[in-house]
């Protein structure tokens, strides 16, 4: 780029052309912009145009008055979120559970991707990959039946096993302490196939020559993973974690609502922002309040991800999101 700058002196004078970096760079940038254009437009139409609707969160939206015609009410719609002592609990549960999910899924998915890569030549690998994807097709509603069949007090398999070994079986649907674990296992089970495949694709994209060279240098499997596989995956890991942080205030409603069967006795660990909002508004159907909750979740996620991105930028500019 520097070279370009020197070679093509002011063919297009002024700030703009200097910013772009000369004729050749101008053409390159133009081509790239053209290429990006359909995507930019689609996002503009389907994501940015409706975004003006965010103002609903600050209005008393009455259908008959329309979005613009409804009255402004300031922060009134946010009040229900923070008005009770539940606010702290749902925020904590959402943050803690999502943090656990991000950590366990990232590590688990990396592990599975690496294992899968080790046996990639084997005919079996195809079946593993397929099987790991099965849970993705099982909705949380259906999964809740199996969790119930496994954990329920009278006929549940889990308690039969515990009894067999002389343990004292807990009443799972009355024991909130057990649920962070249950939900984490359910989440890993559901997402591992999906997440690991991204990393597997990343590993498969690494040039085999790198591994060959390492082998010649006498690096064992562990060393190869540590010095080649993981460093090559860093950008991908960081981007995925950053994206997950952006949505850390949004909980997977199906998981937290259906799997614990909306049991009040479990709320102390299973109630998250999304389930709370659902429960609060199910009778009212208040669109403004729902919009306010969504806006709150997005804004906090936005702040968090900007911070995280700033930290990443300080460490390595290339890895940052923007």
């Amino acid at each position: 780029m520097q070279a370009n700058n020197l070679k093509s002196p002011a063919t297009k004078s002024g700030f703009f052309s200097r910013w772009i970096g000369g004729q050749r760079a101008w053409e390159t940038n133009l081509s790239l912009l053209t290429m990006a254009l359909p995507g930019i437009l689609l996002l503009f139409v389907f994501a940015y145009l409706p975004m003006f609707g965010i103002i609903i969160a600050f209005k008393d939206y009455r259908f008959v008055d329309g979005i613009l015609g409804s009255a402004w009410v300031g922060m009134e719609n946010f009040r229900f979120l923070f008005g009770t002592d539940t606010a702290f609990r749902i925020t904590r549960n959402t943050l803690v559970m999502n943090s656990i999910f991000i950590a366990t899924t990232t590590i688990g998915a990396l592990l599975v991707a690496i294992l899968m890569n080790e046996v990639y030549q084997s005919r079996m690998s195809k079946y593993y990959q397929t099987m790991l994807f099965f849970p993705y097709f099982i909705s949380w509603v259906i999964a809740s039946y199996f969790v119930f069949a496994f954990l329920n007090g009278s006929t549940g398999l889990a308690n039969q096993i515990i009894e067999r070994f002389g343990g004292d079986p807990p009443s799972w649907y009355r024991t909130p302490e057990a649920w962070p674990l249950v939900l984490t296992v359910a989440h890993i089970w559901n997402s591992i196939g999906f997440s690991s495949i991204v990393y597997l694709a990343g590993i498969l994209g690494i040039s085999p020559e790198l591994f060959e060279a390492a082998k010649i240098d006498g690096a064992g499997k562990a060393a190869q993973i540590r010095y080649i596989t993981l460093p090559m995956l860093y950008p991908l890991i960081i981007i995925l974690v950053l994206l997950a942080i952006g949505r850390i205030f949004h909980a997977d409603f199906g998981l937290f609502f259906f799997v614990p069967r909306d049991t009040p006795m479990l709320y102390s660990t299973t109630d998250v922002i999304d389930t709370f909002v659902y429960r609060s508004l199910v009778q009212l159907g208040n669109i403004s309040m729902a919009a306010a909750a969504g806006f709150y979740q997005s804004t906090v996620g936005f702040v968090l991800v900007i911070t995280a991105n700033w930290v990443v930028r300080r460490i390595n500019r290339d890895y940052s999101l923007f």
Binding site: E76, T84, P264, F276, R279, L281, L284, N286
Partner: peptide, 15 residues
């Protein structure tokens, strides 16, 4: 009383 209804509905189920 929209806000109060939202709040009490959630608490009702819980406690």
């Amino acid at each position: 009383i929209q806000t109060e209804i939202a709040q009490t509905t959630a608490v009702w189920t819980e406690v």
